[in-house]
Design a protein around this nucleic acid. Sequence first.
DNA 1: CCGGAGTTTTTCAACGATTGACATCACCTG
DNA 2: CAGGTGATGTCAATCGTTGAAAAACTCCGG
Lengths: 333, 333
Amino acid sequence: MATRLSDVAARAGVSVKTVSNVINDYPHITARTRAKVEAAIAELDYTPNVSARSLRKGRSDFIALAVPEMASPYFAELGAAISRAAKKRGITVLIDQTEGEAAAEKLVLDGMRGQLIDGIIFSPITTAPARITSADTAKPLVLLGERHPGGTFDHVAVDSVQASFDATMHLVSIGRRRIAAIGVGGGAGTGSVRRKGYRKALKAAGLELDPALEVGGSGYHREDGAASMRELLALPEPPDAVFCFNDLMAIGALRALTDAGLSAPEDVAVIGFDDIEDGRYHSPSLSTISADKEWLAENAVALLLDRIAGTGEADRRDLTVPYTLTIRESTGG
Amino acid sequence: MATRLSDVAARAGVSVKTVSNVINDYPHITARTRAKVEAAIAELDYTPNVSARSLRKGRSDFIALAVPEMASPYFAELGAAISRAAKKRGITVLIDQTEGEAAAEKLVLDGMRGQLIDGIIFSPITTAPARITSADTAKPLVLLGERHPGGTFDHVAVDSVQASFDATMHLVSIGRRRIAAIGVGGGAGTGSVRRKGYRKALKAAGLELDPALEVGGSGYHREDGAASMRELLALPEPPDAVFCFNDLMAIGALRALTDAGLSAPEDVAVIGFDDIEDGRYHSPSLSTISADKEWLAENAVALLLDRIAGTGEADRRDLTVPYTLTIRESTGG
DNA sequence: CCGGAGTTTTTCAACGATTGACATCACCTG
DNA sequence: CAGGTGATGTCAATCGTTGAAAAACTCCGG
């Protein structure tokens, strides 16, 4: 595919610039010329060279999505949604796995990838979001994940406190009194924000807060959920319900429950957060907080493109993703 | 980030050429100069402009991975592995979702992305692999998925027939006599190849082949597996074991089983294919064919880079991914 | 048939990094 | 001290595309 603009031009009998004009929808072109050029393009199967174009224009129509790990179902689903949303607008998404490494996250922030990308959608995990300032990056950036009042960037996320409150209240509403939380140590503020909602709910329900029931470190994987659940079950007085700060841990927790010969929701009710597809097919199916990922993707992309085009408002925007409480078997749905 | 090569040169007090030499590992450079230049690069936080470099060199160090959908756990895990393998070699992976659309797949094959990428790792689904010829693409290409004798490209895959044989024989070995197969209509040859292994095993075990036990269309998702399982359970003589052609369907099948008040492995033993993480944590945990994804990723990337560098052997290579039969609860492990 | 107002098309020079041919030096060696 | 070697610099060209500006063309009224 060595077809260049000049080849097309030669074929169509016009100048290189005219071909470029046709491609870029320059208004003043005769129908005749346009037709000729388009025919030549079709015949030669021409595709513009992205590198050259981006070098000249300073725009590449590539954006990066930086996530901790793409194999994690939530991020995989998110990535798919964002890719789709971007494609609709003629934008290509480049996915970056930071693998939870601070170094990799820093790389993302430093106008990484040698100016190829026009902007970044960033889901931080190690980098304390508050510490990210506009000085750190030259590229437009949209943050996903927990909100942070002092931030300088556009931001899209669920109201985690409220959602966690709802999840916990749901456990209360089905009669549970000893409700645990898994994932309180979670990265990038997730743990503390969701715990806030959890505690608020306990208080609202008049339940006592037992520190022994708040468990979980920074990992948010299945095995972390399983380990936390085992820890809880080993307590002198185990919980009768657990709110896991994400679905992946909830699935691990359910597994640990089964391994212990117990079952959900009878012995322990379990609710997660994220609504990943696995949860729907799990036995028992998993109750969860279901954020609208399509909405999130659409808006994150739109926000970023606005910023890139410079048409966005001057001050940063904070979008809140709609969510619903989805009740399934794991809480007796 | 408007730092250019010339800025670095000025800062280091050397010529642009020297900086370029340092970056590109030109042999004759004093340690002093190299140090100076490297210091300048670090201070200015310089990153070469990818567009300019790729325009000039004709190499971008980007490769594309084209998969049907990245939200599907198998592809997500594969994508993660390939990204990692590529990163080790200084290559960036661009993931493309074809969403099972023939048009999108065709786009991938037409030296898509305007010459930005150096090569493609392609996991086809609608495009009949035999139909892909080197005439269709100008870029080096490595195919994943079922093998096809007539192909013209390098290829990496599990020996699906053998693996399916093993999976089926495992069901036989635990005493099952009425063994069904789910996914026989699967895309890009997967269905027919795995069915071949399945049938071979039945024959080897002296079991009769019942066409009613071979079900499933082209979809390979959880809901397809669930639907197929329901279909099987509705038979006058339902199966006592099922081999699902991928784990996702197996999970759906397990769910359908549960919904019908039956359980695995007691009523119906279930085995899948792929060893996705979900399967390990499912209740019951899922027996499966576990292909070495890291191996697959490493080799697919290495093969492609060889091809790109032109150092590969002239004739196409066909690599077979090692796998193991992993027995878990769903078959009584 | 000319001048001017558009409209359409072309010419020219970047964008930033790399490379090749060659010119300089500064040393070192015999 | 001539000649060789190693290290760096100069200069110009190149990759394919596009913005700015200039040139060529069309059309119309006078």
